[in-house]
């Protein structure tokens, strides 16, 4: 029982961070219909940013989100304006390769600057735990990052539902041409959406850096995970990505115990294929375009 509870709790907590990565990807896909293969690399840039801020200025990684978020937003906006914008109407594989190319540029530039060493960001609470009782424990940094994730997600919902810009983004995601006809500045919305997507990925990077490690090629793992989460929840659905993230967290954690940890990624991919085949719109998606 203790094993079951432990797996469930850590699955949910790690799933919170996955959700943040997935939301970023789903926003980008929703608005631009571009599959961003550089998503994990953007997360990696966020990690290094956190690392610099932590080592140079001594700012706590969780606090540094306040700096990382806007910086990564600008970075995402820049990527959209300079690169992605030019291929919005290109065929899918060209979009994929462009983002792969951008990812390669990011990871290898970082490698030239920081070398390919593994960086560990150690805070006073990196190894701290809370005992819940019944032999179950919770990692303090993971719990904090989960709470921050929840707060950011709530703020994002509010932004998308209640503000004019948020509604314009949703309208663009629903129908780009119609939105344009309605007088929405689609180009601007795309920049904001990509900026937000990058900011969320960067924030996720900041949040996991106290419990994870940092190196230039760290992105790949997270890119694939982000795809699975996004499809699971329904491409373009923010609620779906939130649920998808937590679901993947739990699936990984449970299958590591009850199937085998070597096979846990296979379980995730099989789940992914099943969703694609039997409910292609995802758990929360309405239509598939």
């Amino acid at each position: 029982m203790a094993v079951f509870l432990q797996s469930l709790i850590s699955g949910i907590l790690i799933g919170g961070v996955y959700a943040l990565i997935g939301i970023g990807l789903t926003l980008i896909f929703g608005v631009m219909r571009v599959i961003n293969f550089a998503h994990g690399d953007i997360l990696m840039v966020g990690m290094y940013l956190t690392y610099i801020i932590f080592t140079m200025m001594g700012v706590d990684p969780f606090v540094s989100v306040l700096i990382t978020f806007p910086l990564m937003f600008l970075f995402g906006g820049f990527l959209q304006k300079v690169f992605i914008n030019r291929i919005l109407n290109a065929v899918a594989q060209n979009q994929i390769l462009l983002t792969i190319g951008l990812g390669l540029i990011m990871s290898n530039t970082v490698m030239l600057i920081f070398t390919s060493d593994y960086k560990i960001l150690t805070t006073s609470y990196s190894s701290a735990t809370l005992q819940v009782g019944g032999g179950v424990s919770v990692s303090t940094p993971l719990l904090i990052s989960f709470l921050i994730t929840a707060a950011i997600t709530a703020a994002l919902y509010w932004f998308l539902l209640k503000t004019d810009t948020g509604q314009a983004i949703r309208a663009t995601a629903q129908d780009r041409d119609a939105a344009q006809l309605m007088g929405i500045n689609v180009k601007r919305m795309s920049i904001i959406a990509f900026g937000l997507g990058a900011a969320l990925a960067g924030t996720a990077g900041a949040l996991i850096s106290p419990t994870y490690y940092i190196f230039p090629q760290v992105g790949g793992v997270f890119t694939l995970k982000a795809f699975v989460i996004t499809v699971l929840g329904g491409m373009g659905s923010v609620v779906g990505a939130t649920l998808g993230g937590v679901l993947i967290g739990i699936t990984e954690s449970m299958s590591a115990v009850y199937i085998s940890s070597g096979w846990k990624d296979v379980v995730v991919f099989v789940l992914f294929l099943l969703v694609l085949l039997f409910k292609p719109s995802g758990l929360m998606g309405k239509s598939r375009t």
């Binding site: 296979v266 991919f269 992914f272 085949l277």
Partner: peptide, 25 residues
């Protein structure tokens, strides 16, 4: 082949990854 566009791309990646992980396990 039941899927189109980006979904086809993602499914093709997933299948290849399943084969890679199976070869490891």
């Amino acid at each position: 082949f039941r899927l189109r566009g980006p979904y086809f791309v993602l499914a093709s990646i997933a299948v290849a990854e399943i084969l890679r992980l199976s070869a490891i396990n």
